[in-house]
Amino acid sequence: MIGQNTIAEIREHSAMMEESGRLTEKMLEYIYDEGLFKLFLPEALGGSTTPLPEALQTFETAAYADGSFGWLVQIGSGAGFFAATLSPKAVKEFFTARDFFIAGSDRPLGTARKTGSGYIINGTWPYASGALHANLFTATCRVASEDEDDGALYAFAFTPEQVSIEEDWNAFGMKATGSHTIHVSEAVVPAHRRFDVAAPHFYYDHPAYHYPFLPFASANIAATVIGVARHFYEAARKHIESKLASGREADARRHHHTLDILDANESSFMQARRSYYDVVETSWQAHMDGKVLDDEILDAVSDHSKIVAHAAVSGIQQLYRHLGMDMIMEDSPLNRIYRDLLTASQHGLLIDSEGQIEEINTI
């Protein structure tokens, strides 16, 4: 879907997008034209009902073009999952828009007070990727009520005029994602804009909606990391080869050694990438065959998402030390790709927090 000419054009915008902290209008228009925020929406909502393995390839390619671009394509399409959880009234109202994009957070950092026809919401949520161009926001709140819902966690959907954006995304990578903090104060939200991702209704359907959400989300984010890592290896190889072509003969041995390190680490990374896609494809085929996905296969999807992220980061960290002073300059494309990789791979779903995943060289 994203061809080589488009990849080149996206990369022409990369430095500009990083400086401004958001995607350019031209890149957003391309996304809208191609429906890249709607890969997991059914045709009735203007989507393309894309199978999960195919969507992951698209996320990888988008991130291979540019990290922030790929992250937002992945986040935007992943939010299509909410079409199975929001009421049909809210879905029809918001999801059919050409520029449909949801920004928000699943952190339970808000409060919801019941009123006669809905809720009054207050809260603050960080890291709302794409906040500057979202036409709907979602966030999780704890309900304050005198009935059985007291203390329950639900997500709520807000319109842009109900949200204030604090432009505080100061991360050293993925700068163009605009992952700012959002605030909601005394917002009145009708009951039909309350939802629970654990209790889908399936008025609108898509095979991805029946796939368990956590491994689905892990695989989506891992595909983004894979794309950024591929871009880094490509750019690093060109950088080393240019040094060999124009550098002093005395430095040739050092540059050839760096190429050897690149080759070895890229090979391990690509092995992990193949294993990741094999596991996802196996799970998806079983899912489409109507089989119940057991914990073993779902854990494998989550585990291989972590493994491939580990392979990407550890291999490139080792290579980084051999790429010279160009690597440390913030205006260098290599530096930007590196910062994007470390930022994207920091997502909690890709962290082996309990030490359960074996090192990549043992898989």
Rank of each mutant, 00 (worst) to 15 (best):
H210L: 11
A65H: 08
W284L: 05
T159C: 05
R113M: 09
K26M: 10
D196C: 03
L41W: 03
K38Q: 07
Y64E: 11
A252H: 14
F195E: 06
F100P: 00
I328S: 05
F213M: 15
Y64I: 04
S14F: 06
A309N: 02
A55L: 06
R193D: 00
F81Y: 15
D340A: 04
H287T: 11
A235L: 14
Y277K: 08
H255I: 00
A187T: 01
R321G: 12
I7H: 07
G78T: 13
V143I: 14
M329V: 13
R253H: 09
K114C: 03
L293T: 02
A84V: 01
S305E: 15
E358F: 07
T181Q: 04
T224R: 13
D299P: 03
S87G: 00
I31M: 09
D263C: 07
S105T: 00
Y119L: 00
R98I: 07
G348K: 06
V313Q: 13
N361Q: 15
A134S: 06
L323S: 02
K238V: 15
F202N: 07
A187D: 01
Q317E: 11
I2K: 06
R142P: 04
Y127P: 01
Q57N: 12
Y233C: 04
H231V: 07
F40K: 00
A217E: 10
P200F: 00
L342Q: 10
G151L: 08
M1A: 09
L214C: 09
G80M: 01
S105P: 04
A62G: 04
G76A: 03
E34Q: 14
Y32D: 13
E186V: 01
S242I: 05
Q57T: 13
S302Y: 01
E18I: 11
W71S: 10
G247Q: 12
A144C: 07
L334A: 06
A155T: 06
A236S: 13
I363P: 03
A171G: 13
G324A: 00
